[in-house]
């Protein structure tokens, strides 16, 4: 699936919640609960995303030109939010991640239900994921040279 196909799928799922704030929050937390646990060795200070009010650990690996992220958070809602990003970016190429336009955030009204502070944190997670993509892209290019 492409990044946009996954985004469209998420938009459809959130539409079913019909704007109910409580259902939305519960749904996001449920998504977080399903996120595979991060390896203990990756739960380091280095992997903490800067700019999040909650603590978020994020790391990435590359297999066959596709990126694979794993993450965890000390708050359930943030874990759910990062799981959405992981779902979108899993097995996508660094280039696709770098150029991704994450329109799903507006479509599902994310800022409305997570508030400004968490929105800033969410932006920090996206930035960190794009930084990973850039790092892997650079690594690939060096290898090709």
């Amino acid at each position: 699936m492409t990044i946009n196909q996954v985004q469209d799928e998420i938009i459809q799922e959130f539409a079913l919640l019909d704007g109910d704030r409580e259902m939305t929050v519960f749904y996001i937390m449920e998504l977080g609960q399903k996120l595979p646990a991060i390896e203990d060795r990756d739960r380091t200070e280095e992997n903490v995303v800067k700019g999040c009010q909650s603590k978020v650990w994020l790391t990435a690996t590359m297999k066959n030109n596709g990126l694979y992220f794993s993450a965890d958070s000390n708050t359930a809602i943030t874990k759910g939010l990062v799981s959405l990003l992981i779902r979108i970016f899993t097995n996508q190429t660094p280039d696709d991640i770098l150029h991704a336009d994450l329109y799903f955030m507006n479509k599902i009204g994310m800022e409305r239900f997570i508030g400004t502070q968490r929105s800033n944190g969410f932006a920090a997670m996206i930035k960190q994921m794009k930084l990973y993509a850039l790092a892997f892209k650079t690594k690939m290019e060096i290898r090709h040279d």
Partner: peptide, 13 residues
């Protein structure tokens, strides 16, 4: 349960 989660869920109500 983290206090941020509780605050957010209460706000939803």
């Amino acid at each position: 349960i983290h206090h941020f989660d509780i605050g957010q869920m209460l706000d939803a109500r």
